[in-house]
Design a protein around this nucleic acid. Sequence first.
DNA 1: GTAGGGTTGTGGACAGTGTACACATCGCGT
DNA 2: ACGCGATGTGTACACTGTCCACAACCCTAC
Lengths: 210, 210
Amino acid sequence: MTDDHGRTTYRHGDLRGALIAAGIEMAREGGPDAVVLREATRRAGVSPNAAYRHFDDRDALLREVSDACLGLAADRIERSFDEHPPTGDPQADARQLLRSVGLGYLGFAREEPGLFRTAFSVPDNLNRAAESAKAGRRGRTPFQLVGVALDALLEAGLLPPERRPNAEFLAWATVHGLGMLVIDGPLRGLDDRMIDFATERLLDMVDRGL
Amino acid sequence: MTDDHGRTTYRHGDLRGALIAAGIEMAREGGPDAVVLREATRRAGVSPNAAYRHFDDRDALLREVSDACLGLAADRIERSFDEHPPTGDPQADARQLLRSVGLGYLGFAREEPGLFRTAFSVPDNLNRAAESAKAGRRGRTPFQLVGVALDALLEAGLLPPERRPNAEFLAWATVHGLGMLVIDGPLRGLDDRMIDFATERLLDMVDRGL
DNA sequence: GTAGGGTTGTGGACAGTGTACACATCGCGT
DNA sequence: ACGCGATGTGTACACTGTCCACAACCCTAC
């Protein structure tokens, strides 16, 4: 436990970090709506208004929590990379790389639906998609990871150069959509085998159609 | 105006409908979080608690608003059908049918982002995806419309029978994902031309990869 | 080392929300 | 005509985000 809830000093030490951590925990259980400012301060053992020394308002806190969630998604994708190490065949490896992005992304959505929803609950845009706040431990954001995989496909000659620009949008949209439908869309409640199967087919489609 | 705000009778007449209508209007402007029960009753010219005669709680109201939004999405897709009438070539027509679903769906997301987000803000599952409450004026839900298009592809011989089962998931996930990314994901703020282009490419991908 | 001064946390207050409970008013079927 | 179930009202409470004035602290300049 890193929280000095029962602190003795007047200053907290790292209230900002504690509030974000509390926010992530709440987001994990209940999604973006569950990250409530007062509760975060309560968990940090501090009065409600203390939060305003570190965040303009609740939205600012949520934004930071959301960025952190994107970082966790990046971590999950990197883990998926590690689980499918390159074999030496450049073409097969490139395809597996993109597949791994999809698998990691969807794994994150299924394992941490609250964090997943929180990650995308805050309006964003392309300019900010590569901000370091959204990066995982290895310093890359999910958006960048998709790009890496696509670059590999390009280099392996599996993606015609004229199709490379903005291909991120297509790949990302596809897995993102499945993620959303699975966690609280109509595909919710499907058994795991079914979802695995849909995932494989979806990735096949991307592989074939990109 | 159908709202009898300045009513003279004790009974409202159609409070239930008025609350849903007010909810839709609020959702249009601010998405699911903006549909607030008290404000709905205010707009209906009624005391806050009157709502509880028609809905268990705020969530129940939101659910109904959400269903209505899905119906509006269905209407938008049907409009897209009308804009791309069949030409007589069964294969081309079938492909255009699926394309029209995608275009209508994404058109709805872009034209009515608040309603779009509201439509998918409520946990759902497959069993309920065909409920008549979610249907448009012509009685079909968005999920059913995707199915119709896929059936046409099957019949035209463009979709191998073994790939027909659950193909809804793939097609839907793809356009849904693009919709989400465009309205408040990283693709937000892209100019229309760019989005049109991405839409076309996405639909090409589905066409090729399904 | 001591007097400020900026930073961080506190306390009290207010509007707005969802919702429970008791009460009022009405329309309809007997 | 009456009474009962359905619909709308009033009051109240806990909870939220946020504003303002105040308190406690740490750091820096003399």
